[in-house]
Design a protein around this nucleic acid. Sequence first.
DNA 1: TATTTTTACCTAAGTTTCCAATGTATTAAA
DNA 2: TTTAATACATTGGAAACTTAGGTAAAAATA
Lengths: 112, 112
Amino acid sequence: MHSPELVKGTLQTIILKLLADNGRMYGYEITQKVRDLSDGKLVVTEGALYPTLHRLEAENLLITEKEHIGKRVRKYYRLTETGKSSVTERIGEFENFVKTMFTILNLNPGMI
Amino acid sequence: MHSPELVKGTLQTIILKLLADNGRMYGYEITQKVRDLSDGKLVVTEGALYPTLHRLEAENLLITEKEHIGKRVRKYYRLTETGKSSVTERIGEFENFVKTMFTILNLNPGMI
DNA sequence: TATTTTTACCTAAGTTTCCAATGTATTAAA
DNA sequence: TTTAATACATTGGAAACTTAGGTAAAAATA
């Protein structure tokens, strides 16, 4: 598991990117996808996920669609147009941040 | 300037690494070094720096030496042995985190 | 020489963002 | 039939920052 402090601030970017790649996803699906992609190294807890999803929805980056699966209501999230453009932006920000950190920490880019 | 959320959690690593490279530094010097190395893109505010330095000292990763410069007292920070081993550890953690993020975000490593 | 900027230390209040814990309920598997 | 997995969510508290403020010496500039 990664140091939780490092993960802070990247959750929004992760969510937006996953939605950009997969069209639409529901909350639980996102937690599983992150777990799978990271080989269990990064775990998004529900206490972090749902407030973030609601925040992104309030900021008009996501919209929701409810779907009835048996007796359950599943809530799908999808990027708005604003959301789509902010994905690129945030990934760019993350890349730049990593570049800066590599410079400061004097790390070898080949390490990745 | 980088998104402040991303910077969170990396400050300790930055401080420890700078001290590992420079032997000893004082607070103000650290803020300037980070600014220089990052071309102004990453600014460590004093409100973030000093509490962090004191925390690291309390955790026995740093020790201080006071030096009189004219009428002023300058406080130098230096790594303890524990501090030295934790630098490697934390940089490793950061690298692993970046690797995971690159996987999740499907980024090209060559980008750095 | 007077004033501003830079150097240099620091704290306190407030915000954001997360984690841990808890709650509810359906569906699938053991 | 009981446990695990699925699926939504909230709440309280901790951590780490930002903003703002305080003090004062030394250097640069007007």
